[in-house]
Nucleic acid binder design. Structure first.
Lengths: 193, 193
DNA sequence: GTCTATAAGGAGATAGAC
DNA sequence: GTCTATCTCCTTATAGAC
């Protein structure tokens, strides 16, 4: 039941992955979606409207594949769940790449656009708390503040590595290895505190 | 003895800190530098040339303040040197903020602009090796590959935290605390490998 | 080396037919 | 709802005078 709007937003995610938020051209989006530029303005008012709806669309989609992680397959140990949740960002599926790219673009745009900061801060907080929760299941005795700090570092590291991956300076395999070792290092640190 | 080129590049760093790489307009740069657009094209050929030279300029400036760190004041222990080198990125001086902003912009732009990727990868490598060298002086017995991986993580973490700082989601003090703890965690991991 | 003026080509947005 | 055609502004980049 992909409506016209959805069809355009899916195309927008692809175009943003290819050109970035600030490289998105309405005409290219129209071609990608197989519609006219006029129709896009009919549905989304203006360029900013396109962007806002696309970012919303992308967040919903990310929630969907994050949730799907737990449901399928055999039950995992807490450590395995943690690893999986973090490594989810380093897969070469178009959907993950599109989401990572858009997230990085959103983060970079927020530096110059106050309007984006609040949404981004909220989404970041949710992510950090999610990771802190997973860490807490691996080290149940660790204090909450320590878990939160470790989660902040791991998620910030993921963002940093993700940008290096997307900008071509880091292979997926290498990134995944670095993430695993970072989890090791953080867990070891939790044991000592 | 600031030459005209230098004057333009300093202005470019300020404009990029304000508008981003993709928000940089040659006309605004000209106004900021107090010169004409024509002169800018005379010196830098085209928009990409401006960007490339600005990246270079920023890296040199960062190296300068990185180098200046060691010279002044009392001699530091290897661990103190490492901490200082990493914490250098989290100061609220205009110069540091400009450098961090520009670096983040260039990283984000490189995702969509192949012309920037090579320079950026080279600059990243230099940085990683510098940090690996400092780590090696703290843990002289650690294997080079292990040091390199730790340096990759620490620098990627710095990039991630830096973006959060600049996009308003993280205070400088908090960022500095997280960096210190990350160094702890990485050093502890080096001891176990 | 530096400026002024302007060509040339995007890119966002709208009008009006169907 | 959807398309075609087009208007207008903005931006890069160059030409030519000084």
């Amino acid at each position: 039941m992909a409506s016209r709007s959805t069809q355009i937003l899916e195309a927008a995610a692809r175009v943003i992955a290819r050109r970035g938020v600030r490289g998105l051209r309405v005409e290219e989006l129209a071609a990608e979606a197989g519609v006219s530029t006029g129709l896009i303005y009919y549905h989304f008012k203006d360029r900013t409207g396109i962007l806002r709806h696309t970012l919303e669309f992308i967040n919903e989609r990310a929630e969907r594949y994050t949730a799907a992680r737990g449901e399928s397959g055999e039950p995992l140990s807490p450590r395995e769940e943690l690893d999986e949740a973090l490594l989810l960002e380093f897969q070469d599926s178009p959907e993950v790449r599109e989401n990572s790219t858009a997230w990085g673009e959103l983060r970079a745009s927020a530096v110059f656009d106050a309007a984006l900061r609040e949404d981004l801060a909220r989404a970041t907080l949710v992510w950090v708390q999610d990771v802190a929760g997973l860490l807490g299941r691996v080290r149940p005795m660790a204090p909450a503040a320590t878990l939160a700090a470790a989660a902040e570092r791991l998620t910030a590291l993921l963002e940093g590595l993700s940008m290096r991956w997307l900008s071509g300076g880091l292979s997926l395999d290498h990134a995944r290895g670095l993430v695993r070792e970072a989890v090791d290092a953080e867990l070891a640190r939790l044991d000592r505190s």
